[in-house]
């Protein structure tokens, strides 16, 4: 264990890492916005009482929940161009894979959140003369959203971590940049330790936030 740590060899490339972190954030913001928004929409389709709507939505959710994101990214990168003839950039493959996956997961959170509200709440809404839509909007959703907050935050954390998969198709996010540094300077220990710490520092507050939300709103569904 008498290894000489040399973090300076990583930090001289701070701008390379900063570019990577920026790319990571870009992926995170695009994928989590589209993914959570799309997920709420997909969750509503999934909750629909019309089978023609809920069944295809269910199929979508199951397919994307039950296949690895990496397979999806690779599929979009190598296979999609073959079918469509459209050139797919690393960024696009990563965004497609991560977003479609996040839609599937947050759809389930959304559905679970609504279902977690006790039947009595629907009945109480009905009893004071509310319509289905009114009960949903005024009574159910406000409570369900609170319960959905902790699992949705966890989803966000997952998305942030998932963004590293983009390195597999050579998209220059944080990990890819670290790989680059490591291959230049032969310092994998420092390079990967720094990346690990970067993720830890960025995500720890978010994790603490989930804990706080869970304590406040209780009943986590993910």
């Amino acid at each position: 264990m008498d290894y000489n740590w040399d973090f300076a060899s990583v930090f001289v490339y701070w701008n390379v890492l900063a570019m990577g972190l920026w790319a990571t954030f870009k992926l995170f913001i695009i994928c989590s916005t589209l993914g959570l928004g799309g997920g709420l929409f997909m969750g509503m389709l999934r909750y629909s009482k019309t089978r023609w709507i809920s069944y295809p939505a269910m199929l979508y959710v199951e397919v994307f929940r039950n296949t690895p994101v990496l397979v999806q990214i690779i599929w979009f990168f190598f296979a999609l161009p073959v079918v469509t003839g459209i050139e797919v950039s690393p960024m696009m493959a990563a965004v497609l894979g991560i977003t479609l996956n996040t839609i599937a997961f947050s759809a389930e959170v959304f559905r679970g959140g609504i279902q977690s509200i006790e039947r009595e709440q629907w009945e109480a809404g009905k009893a004071i003369g509310m319509s289905y839509a009114q009960s949903m909007r005024r009574v159910i959703l406000p409570q369900a959203l609170k319960r959905m907050l902790p699992p949705l935050t966890s989803r966000g954390i997952e998305v942030f971590k998932m963004s590293t998969l983009a390195s597999v198709v050579a998209y220059p996010e944080t990990l890819q940049q670290a790989k680059l540094i490591a291959s230049y300077e032969y310092n994998p220990i420092e390079a990967y330790t720094v990346v690990a710490l970067m993720f830890f520092i960025v995500l720890l507050p978010l994790v603490q936030l989930t804990y706080m939300l869970e304590r406040r709103f209780g009943k986590s569904d993910a």
Partner: peptide, 9 residues
Amino acid sequence: TTPPLVQLF
């Protein structure tokens, strides 16, 4: 909080 791919590397 750290990505599994980073851990693996």
